[in-house]
């Protein structure tokens, strides 16, 4: 059910041209979150944090809705060079955690930017 909801959202954002992971906005108290995840916060933290909000979330929470990394589209017109596709990385391909690049509650520089400093921005 989550997956269908999400697909609708993705399709919607694709049409408006803003296919990004979502802006960081205030969610609950001082906790920030991604605007496209608002519906998840309505059910508390455990949608992503297994057990309790204090435990680190794992990829499972992301994959449940978004699917596997190599199947998630990115806006290829924005890549520095075609090989710089972060979801089909020549260095990692399937072997990257979502968390290597994406932070839910704070901005994060993707792992690629450790070397390719001008290719990717904090998200």
């Amino acid at each position: 059910m989550m997956k269908t909801l999400l697909l609708t959202l993705v399709v919607a954002t694709l049409f408006t041209g803003a296919a990004n992971a979502g802006d960081l906005v205030k969610m609950k108290g001082s906790t920030q979150g991604r605007s496209n995840h608002e519906f998840i916060y309505q059910d508390g933290c455990k949608g992503c944090h297994q057990g309790s909000g204090k435990q680190n979330a794992t990829d499972a929470a992301c994959v449940e809705c978004h699917g596997e990394i190599t199947s998630i589209p990115v806006d290829e017109s924005k890549l520095a060079i075609p090989e710089a596709h972060p979801h089909k990385s020549l260095h990692y391909n399937q072997g990257a955690s979502c968390l290597a690049c994406h932070g839910e509650h704070e901005k994060k520089a993707p792992v690629c930017a450790e070397c390719h400093r001008t290719w990717f921005k904090e998200m």
Binding site: H91, Y92, G95, A96, S97, L99, A100, V111, C115
Partner: peptide, 9 residues
């Protein structure tokens, strides 16, 4: 958070 260490890069 990635597979591969120095080898991947």
């Amino acid at each position: 958070q990635v597979i591969g260490g120095n080898s991947a890069i």
